[in-house]
Each structure stands twice: as structure tokens, then as C-alpha cells.
Design a protein around this nucleic acid. Structure first.
Lengths: 106, 106
DNA sequence: CGGTATACATCGTATCACGAAGTATCAACC
DNA sequence: GGTTGATACTTCGTGATACGATGTATACCG
């Protein structure tokens, strides 16, 4: 999938991946894999960005001797998903514009 | 509309704007306005990129004493639009993932 | 003991949309 | 004839950001 198309989708995907249950980096990547692929460096950049924007909070917990950072979505994060649904209407109108066939040309 | 979301859409929009009829910069911006807004600097950057990628050709013509550069879509440009339709399936699956409600959570 | 999976972090780079500013022509208005 | 606004294209610098490469560290399995 084209990198440029992924932009703007990735943030929301990450938020969606934690919206029902707190999760951590490695797990998020696995959960998103069937839907959208992203590298670790990309994910951790995104998580930091979302934290700075108050869309999620972080909690460090030990698990099997290793540290894990669990991410929890905030109301702002949920709002971001809702806003995305609105933006989707614009996206759909763009899609229709691009795929619209001109009868005169056909 | 979020800048990041526009990325990956803009190229295809510009190609769509000239797919039925050759057009020039200023006109393309006006035609796209109801669908997606873009500045002149953005458009001319995109046009150069698409030309470099052989997705369109350029022809300079005089019109009312002023020069205009008319852009014409190539087969590669049309293929780009077709490829976009395929990518759209992935986009839709991402949308469904993001908006999917988890019954257990509701 | 070595390989693989887990888990997170940092750095540098390339791509790209945009605002700002500039150049130039033409039509309309006063 | 001077001013303004629309038309038309160009260049420059900046900020955002996805990613590969690389590094660190632990757990588990054979």
C-alpha cells in the first residue's frame, strides 16, 4: 500500500487498536497486521505523538520479567476516531470524483 | 481536511481533473475546489512530479497574450487511477476496522 | 549455547504539502 | 493613467512524518 495513502490513516488505526482494550507496542503491530502494516519505528513514533496530543496515556507494567508499556485511549482519542468518521465523508466524495466516468468521453 | 489524509489523494485528484480533457494549473485548482482544496505551490509541485513519472505531458500554448501550460494525461496516468481503485479496497477495509464496534465493549 | 521471538528506543533520510513571496499580463473601474 | 483584482506560473524554505537501520535487553526452546 502506498505510503502517502497510509498517512492520516495510521494514527486512527493505532487508536482503533486500543479503543476496546489497553495494549502495547508489539501487540498493536500484530493486531494491525491484517489491516495495515507498519514498522516498529513508525509505531513508536506514532504512540509518542498521540501521547503528546493527549489521545492516549501510558502505563508501564512488568510482564514475564520484561517491561511493557500499555497504552490507554483517552476521551480525546475517541473523539479523534469520531472526527475521522466525519472526514470520511469528504474522502468518499473525493473517491467518487476520481472514479466518476464522463459519459461524453466513454 | 487533515493534510495527512490528503496525501496520496492529491496526485490522483489532479490526474482525474485532466482525464477527460486537457487542462492547465489555474483551471485545475478551480475544478478541484468543490472536491479538495490545494494551493498553487502544491499543485505545481504535483504537476512536476506527475510529469517526471510520465503520468502526464505538458504543452505550452498562448491564450489571450498569456502563456498557459496544458497538461495531458498519459496511459500511465490512467493506470495510476486504476491502481487507486484497487488500493481503495484496502482503504475500505481500514475504514471498517477503525469504525467497527466491539459488542463486548458496548 | 545459539537462534528466534518479544519489546522498546534512537537516528538519519526522503517525501511532500504549504505559506510566502515574486513575476507578469489583462480587464475593469474611477 | 493609475489602481485594483483576477489570471497564471515559479521558487524557496519549513515542518510533518513513515521508514530502514541499528542498538539494547530478556525469555524460551532445542
Amino acid at each position: 500500500m502506498d505510503i502517502q495513502l497510509k498517512r492520516g490513516l495510521l494514527d486512527v488505526c493505532v487508536l482503533a487498536a486500543i479503543k476496546n482494550e489497553d495494549s502495547y507496542g508489539y501487540q498493536i503491530i500484530k493486531d494491525l497486521k491484517p489491516c495495515i502494516e507498519l514498522s516498529e519505528s513508525t509505531l513508536y513514533t506514532i504512540l509518542k505523538r498521540l501521547e503528546a496530543a493527549n489521545m492516549l496515556t501510558v502505563r508501564t507494567a512488568e510482564h514475564g520479567g520484561r517491561l511493557r508499556k500499555y497504552y490507554h485511549i483517552t476521551p480525546e482519542g475517541r473523539k479523534r476516531i469520531e472526527d475521522f468518521k466525519d472526514e470520511w465523508k469528504e474522502i468518499m466524495s473525493i473517491y467518487r470524483f476520481v472514479t466518476k466516468e464522463d459519459e461524453a468521453y466513454e
